[in-house]
Every structure is written in structure tokens, then in C-alpha cells.
């Protein structure tokens, strides 16, 4: 075990994957010698050479298309999109190409070795284009896996699983936690399962569901509810947005009868809507109160009023109390 922050854990995962398998490559804007604007690919070019870790011209659709081609040949490209806000120029390559590659060819070809890594999320005064959480856009796309880790241990284990997955993965990294989240991480290779949620705190009164950087926030809200009102929250980290672990959430809600979902992205069309509809359908007779969604407002991510915009612990706490008192 070693103490690592999230960036170190990601860097360590990439290092291990490249050492283990010659077909793993890292590329993107400023990923090469400089090691990435967040330093996630630090020292990888020095270690593995310019052909396996390199800068690309500044073109997201080019990065995605290049990665698709490389993966179709059998390589395992880990392509970085500098901010998730800039993944949209690559949307066509990802949604129409990456996601449908295996299906449309009848499994003659696939891009299963492919991973897109991209920093997402707010809380860093990033305004419109350095704060977005676009997971719901991709959750609507069969063929992709979408993953969000919450801490360094998760980040390493899930990224290694993503690289090893036979399906293409979008790996959203909570950049607010890149240096803020520090924890014990095994130095050896390990994987965490894709498509599995994790119950991080057991509880009996209410199920509280989130992912990525919001896990800290919902924990804070749960602590507050426990201390002030004696409410026992069961906290679940969804970890995989697509495919998502319906069973774990259903099991929890059948026990607690209440569900509060929190995410950074805007409410309308956000992934909480999908979860709420599914749980409502599967747990209808067990629900004691309406499913609550604590999300961003339906506005572009604002700069000056970021604090007001965020689905913070106080808004989450209020939703917990509302749900309990319904």
C-alpha cells in the first residue's frame, strides 16, 4: 500500500497497464513529454517512448477517430480528452462509431480495447466549459461503458478494468478530487468490477445514491442527517453509469423504502431520471415517499454563482428530511 492522490493513482494504473501490455498507448493534447495538463500521464513518454505516449494535434474528433482505428487494429488506446466539456466534437466518433463498431459489423470488427479518459465536474471555478458532467449524454448510447470513480483506490482499479474490458469505455475523472482525494492504494495490479455499484455505508431509513465527486457531498449530508435527526442513510456509489447496477439499488430501496439521488449535472435528462423511473417501476409497493433528485439547475454551469448552483450537502440534507417527513 502507498499513499496516493487520484492523479498518482491514475498515473500508476497507466504505468502498470503499459508495462504489462505493449498494445496499450496513451495520447491526447499535451499528454506527451509534458505529461498532461493535470499530469496524469507524467513520465510515461520517458518510460515507454514517443510512439506509445504522445501529443496529438488539437482535434478531439481526430483523437477519437484515431483511437477507433487503432483499437480496430487490436491496440488498446487510452485517449485523453483534456476536459469532458470538449468531448462534444468527438461525439459523432464516439456515439456513431465507437459504440456501434461491434454491433454493426456482426462482430467482424470491434474497438473493445478503447478507453477515453476525461476530467469532468465542477467546484473549481471552471465556468461553462471546465465544469460539465456529460455522463447522461453517453448513458443513452448502447455499446459504451461509462465509469466514474470516487477516490484514488477506485480510480486505479476501475481504470485498469476499463483498459482490460472487451468493450469501449468512457472514464470520467472527478478533477475536483485529483489532488484533494488522497488514500491508500495497493501498488500491485488490481481491478474493480465494471457494472457493480458499491454500498459504502449501510443504513436502514433511506438510500442515498451518487457517483464521483458527489460521494463526498452525500456522505456529508448523511452525517448531518444522522447527527441532527438520527436518520440512518444507506449510501451507494453507483460507479458504473452504463451498464448500471439495478439490483444493488433495488435491494437497498426495498429495504429502506426511500431514495435520494444526487448528481452534478442538470436535472432534466440527467441520469437520476433513468434511475428514478427504474426504481419506481421495480419498488413501487415499497416506496414510502417520492424519489428525490438533487441535481444541478437546468442552466449552463455558472461561474459567479457556482456555490448556489451545486447540488451540495445542504440541498441533499433537505431532500433527505423531505423524504423522511413525507
Amino acid at each position: 500500500m502507498a499513499k496516493m492522490n487520484m492523479l498518482q493513482a491514475i498515473n500508476n494504473a497507466l504505468d502498470l497497464a503499459m508495462a504489462k501490455d505493449d498494445s496499450v498507448l496513451c495520447f491526447g493534447e499535451d499528454v506527451g513529454h509534458f505529461g498532461g495538463v493535470f499530469r496524469a500521464t507524467s513520465k510515461l513518454q520517458e518510460k515507454y517512448g514517443r510512439e506509445r505516449c504522445f501529443n496529438t494535434p488539437l482535434t478531439e474528433q481526430g483523437i477519437a477517430g484515431f483511437a477507433n482505428g487503432m483499437a480496430a487494429q487490436g491496440m488498446k488506446p487510452v485517449a485523453e480528452i483534456q476536459f469532458a466539456d470538449y468531448i462534444f466534437p468527438a461525439f459523432d466518433q464516439i456515439v456513431n462509431e465507437t459504440a456501434k463498431f461491434r454491433y454493426r459489423s456482426g462482430n467482424e470488427f470491434n474497438v473493445g480495447g478503447l478507453v477515453f479518459r476525461t476530467p469532468y465536474g465542477g467546484g473549481i471555478a471552471g465556468g461553462h466549459y471546465h465544469s460539465q458532467s456529460p455522463e447522461a449524454y453517453f448513458a443513452h448510447t448502447p455499446g459504451l461503458q461509462v465509469i466514474v470513480p470516487r477516490d484514488p483506490y477506485q480510480a486505479k482499479g476501475l481504470l485498469l478494468a476499463a483498459i482490460n474490458s472487451p468493450d469501449p469505455v468512457i472514464f470520467f475523472e472527478p478533477k475536483r478530487l485529483y489532488r484533494a482525494s488522497v488514500g491508500e492504494v495497493p501498488e500491485a495490479y488490481y481491478e474493480l468490477p465494471i457494472g457493480k455499484a458499491e454500498v459504502v455505508q449501510e443504513g436502514s431509513d433511506l438510500t442515498l445514491l451518487a457517483w464521483g465527486a458527489q460521494m463526498e457531498i452525500v456522505q456529508k449530508a448523511a452525517d448531518m442527517a444522522s447527527e441532527k435527526d438520527g436518520i440512518s442513510c444507506e449510501i451507494i456509489d453507483l460507479r458504473s453509469i452504463l451498464p448500471w447496477d439495478v439490483d444493488t439499488v433495488v435491494e437497498s430501496v426495498l429495504k429502506t423504502g426511500r431514495l435520494v439521488i444526487n448528481h452534478e449535472a442538470p436535472l432534466t435528462g440527467g441520469f437520476a431520471g433513468e434511475i428514478a423511473a427504474t426504481i419506481q417501476q421495480q419498488c413501487f409497493l415499497h416506496l414510502e415517499s417520492p424519489i428525490e433528485r438533487v441535481c444541478g439547475l437546468d442552466v449552463p454551469y455558472p461561474l459567479a454563482l457556482e456555490k448556489e448552483y451545486i447540488a451540495d450537502h445542504l440541498k441533499t440534507y433537505e431532500a433527505i428530511v423531505r423524504s423522511m417527513n413525507f
Binding site: 474528433q61 481526430g62 477519437a64 477517430g65 484515431f66 483511437a67 477507433n68 482505428g69 487503432m70 483499437a71 480496430a72 487494429q73 487490436g74 491496440m75 488506446p77 459523432d92 466518433q93 456513431n96 462509431e97 456501434k100 454493426r104 459489423s105 456482426g106 467482424e108 470488427f109
Partner: peptide, 28 residues
């Protein structure tokens, strides 16, 4: 499309195969 004859399966979106070809050739 056919893997046996090294012919990548065609898709309708135009131009998408162009950067893919670059990546494929780089891997070759």
C-alpha cells in the same frame, strides 16, 4: 465488411473512417 479480406465494415456517417484509417495505419 469482412475481417477475412481486411475490409472494414462500412458505416453511413461520412468521413468518420478517415481519422480511423490514420489510427489503423499507425497501429500497423
Amino acid at each position: 465488411g469482412s475481417k477475412d479480406i481486411y475490409y472494414m465494415t462500412v458505416s453511413s456517417p461520412l468521413g468518420t473512417q478517415i481519422p480511423q484509417a490514420s489510427g489503423y495505419a499507425y497501429a500497423q
